[in-house]
Each structure stands twice: as structure tokens, then as C-alpha cells.
Design a protein around this nucleic acid. Structure first.
Lengths: 225, 225
DNA sequence: CGGCGTCTTGACGCGATCTTGGCGCCGGTT
DNA sequence: AACCGGCGCCAAGATCGCGTCAAGACGCCG
């Protein structure tokens, strides 16, 4: 049975959703504010979270951020405003789906099913293996022929972004934003320095990079698979 | 690791399920008839039983009845017929969930997860043994060469979270949330202090940690196996 | 009330990590 | 041939994060 947490400040809405979900054989828990929502997630770890953006205490966005800091639980964001800003922001923060009020129960149920099914697929861990090198991005673990290789936080972040786009070119702006935020300094050589240390640790021959390739003037590309 | 017993008379189906479950890090045993299924359950007590209703010797329903006479092991009934009679009967007899063929692997996996979670953490024996050190997380008992080691509640909670993710990096936010809830204070050194006392008690050489490794700027990792 | 174990909080030193600037190489352009 | 932008590389200094210690607060129980 799927366990759903409904987060909404409107008691009537909580009630409606509970009844409908329970009638479909979902186990339901509700929360009226962000604080208790976080608590429920932490204690009981639902299969899906339905999160309304308009909450009294914490902003829904803040709740989502905090959730993502400690769990991968699937979240469907519910919003009264159909502003696409909200949508983009929510999805960027790791929401799995987005639905705007008013919505039909059927649509909601369909999205709950879709999301729990999708997550049921257990995103296979992001692992790369080349030669003796093994990069387990989800575990933040790197080994060469079994020996541990230590990467620093910045190095991991860069490797992670590059690995997610494996094969594709990743622009410098995207890499810089991923680590230093949108207000990164344009006039630095962060990337050159950190990519150098990444190569020193991961490339077979750091002076002749194969995995982390430079695309002059554009960005970098991670080649594997 | 969760241990699943697959009971089905069709070898191809056993094989398919085994492969898919093993790929997800489940330990799998199979049985082709009711008799051997009962035997496996008695001898090795799986965490979840996948029970097909169409068996050669004993009727699946009969197997379920006998199972329930001596154990509470979670059972997911698999049936080719979607007759709700079957469903009602199976659930009445103590099945924990019901799924009809044909089904997607994803759906099955989701139900296995849900069932094993619902029935309780049942994390089969979260016990770690290294050198003379023995950590029984489920029982909250720790011994070194037979001698009791006392851990405080907070220490246990941290050890538990780390042990559950053995080998993986556990981020600071996750550890903090596990102990102090989602509204933890960001600006403290809780983790440093408590990890220090954990190491003082559990590490062979606390000044040179092997079990509880720090990943600067990210979190901690419990290494065993 | 007093003792005990546990948790919190602040301060300090040290090593790892990051930043910053400079230098040389290379390919493309003038 | 000289110039230039972009990059790899290096090394020094600044900063950050961690381990450690110790003092005090807190709750529990006798």
C-alpha cells in the first residue's frame, strides 16, 4: 500500500484529499504546516508527499528545500498560482511533479500513481566504470582498482554535473553556477584549477585527459559510455 | 539487505523475478512448489514472500494458511486470475498485499518495498562485526571482545543512520535531521562532538578513524565490509 | 538536595581546501 | 613573426572545516 503525506493549510482540502486517497487504498497522513510536514517525513518516510505551496509558517519552497537536504522522497507540488515561475523553481529544487489548483481528483490520482511508479523504478545509481576506475556519484565514492580516491566537495559537485550530462557538452556558466551559485565571478580560473585536480586524481594520464575533455571557449565534456 | 522468497511453479518466472530483485540488491531464494516453500520459510525466514497462487502440489491458498499457522512473515500474493474472490480470500487469510498477472517489475518492486517497510523496519539483522567489535543496531547493543560498550541515545541514532547507509556518504543535513529534527541549528558542532565520542568508544584508534570516516564539507561515511 | 550521566556551547589549533595571481604553452589570427 | 585569447600548471596565502578540550546546563534518580 502506498503511503501519502498531504501537506495543506486548508483543513477542508486535507479532508477531501484524505477521503479520496483512502478510498483508493492509499494510506494517508496529513500536515497543516511546514514544520509538522518535515517532522512526519523524517519520522515515517512517506512514499509520496503532496505539498501545497501556500503554507502559514514556512513557505512551501522552503519546506521543499529542507526536505531535499535529507531525503529523496518524491514530492508533488500543489499550487494555487499557475505562475510558471513557481513551477520552474519547484522543479529546480527537486520536486517530481507539479499541479495547479483547481484540479480534479482524477488528475491528482493519476499524478500520484505516475510519480510513485516512476520512483518505483529506483533511478539506477549513477555509476560509471572505466578501466579500473569506478565513480559512484550517488554514494560519493571513487575507487581505482579498489583503492579509495578522495575528492573534495567542489570536485564532487563538478564531477556530478558532468556525469549527469554524460557525453554532452556542459557550459562553463552551468558548472560555475552549480558550485558557486548564479552570482559567480566571471573573471576567475576556478574551473581550470579544480578540473586540473580532478584530472590528477581520476585520469590515467592527467596530462592527456580522456574522461574530462576541454571544449575551448565553451566548457567541458565527460566521456563515458 | 532484504531477503525475498519467490514461490512460483514457472521456472521462467522464477528466473525473471530473481534477476530483477537481485539487480536491486535483494537476496533471493526461489521455490517451485508449496512444500519446499514452507521449508524455506521455516529454515531461513525471509523478509518477504512472493506467493503465486497456482502451484502444482498444494494450492497457494493452502500454503498461505499453513504459513500463517506459524509465522507473521509478510506475504504478497501473486495471481493470474484477477477474480476479486481470490483477492478477498487471500487477504482474509493474512496476505499483506495482492498483485495480479501480468504486472510490471516496477509495480512488484514497489509493493515489495512497501510491504517490507510497512511490516516494520525488519532490516534483517543490522549487525556489523569488525575485529572484536560487534554492533547490533536493531538491539542497540555494542560489544568489544564480549565486553559491553555503552552508547548514549544520540550516539546510537547516528550510528544507526550511518550503518543503514553503510559505505555510502551520509550528508550532515541527514544526520542532523535524524537526531535533532528538520529544524536543526545549522551553526553548531553537534556532529563533531558526538562523532568524537562515538569514535572514542568504537574505533580501535580514535585518533585514526577507520570505521567512521569524515568527508570534509559533506558528511560522514561508515565503512564496513 | 546532591550526584551522575548526557548534552550543549564556546574557544582553540591544525590541516585540508579553496582562492588568487602569475607563468608558459598552444593554436589561431593578424 | 608577433600577437592574443584560452587553457594547464604551480605555489603561496587565506579561509574553512574538523577534532579536541573543558566548562556549564540539563534532566534523572536516589
Amino acid at each position: 500500500m502506498t503511503f501519502v503525506l498531504v501537506v495543506d493549510d486548508d483543513p477542508a482540502m486535507r479532508r477531501t484529499l484524505s477521503i479520496n486517497l483512502r478510498a483508493r487504498d492509499y494510506e494517508v497522513e496529513t500536515a497543516g504546516d511546514g514544520r509538522s510536514a518535515l517532522q512526519v517525513v523524517e519520522e515515517r518516510m512517506p512514499d509520496v508527499v503532496l505539498l501545497d505551496l501556500g503554507l502559514p509558517d514556512l513557505d512551501g519552497i522552503a519546506v521543499l528545500t529542507q526536505l531535499r537536504s535529507f531525503t529523496q522522497v518524491p514530492v508533488i507540488v500543489v499550487s494555487a498560482r499557475s505562475e510558471s515561475d513557481d513551477k520552474v523553481e519547484a522543479l529546480d529544487l527537486g520536486a517530481d511533479d507539479f499541479i495547479t489548483k483547481p484540479f480534479s481528483i482524477e488528475e491528482l490520482l493519476a499524478r500520484v500513481r505516475a510519480t510513485s511508479r516512476r520512483v518505483g523504478r529506483e533511478e539506477p545509481d549513477l555509476v560509471v566504470e572505466v578501466d579500473g576506475l569506478r565513480l559512484d556519484v550517488t554514494d560519493s565514492r571513487a575507487t581505482r582498482d579498489g583503492a579509495e580516491i578522495h575528492l573534495t566537495p567542489i570536485e564532487w559537485k563538478l564531477v556530478e554535473v558532468l556525469a549527469r550530462h554524460r557525453g554532452r557538452l556542459v557550459r562553463q556558466a552551468e558548472l560555475l553556477t552549480a558550485v558557486w551559485g548564479p552570482a559567480y565571478d566571471t573573471q576567475t580560473n576556478y574551473l581550470r584549477v579544480h578540473l586540473a585536480s580532478i584530472r590528477r586524481k581520476l585520469e590515467a594520464d592527467p596530462s592527456r585527459p580522456v574522461l574530462f575533455v576541454t571544449e575551448p571557449g565553451m566548457g567541458y565534456r565527460f566521456t563515458a559510455g
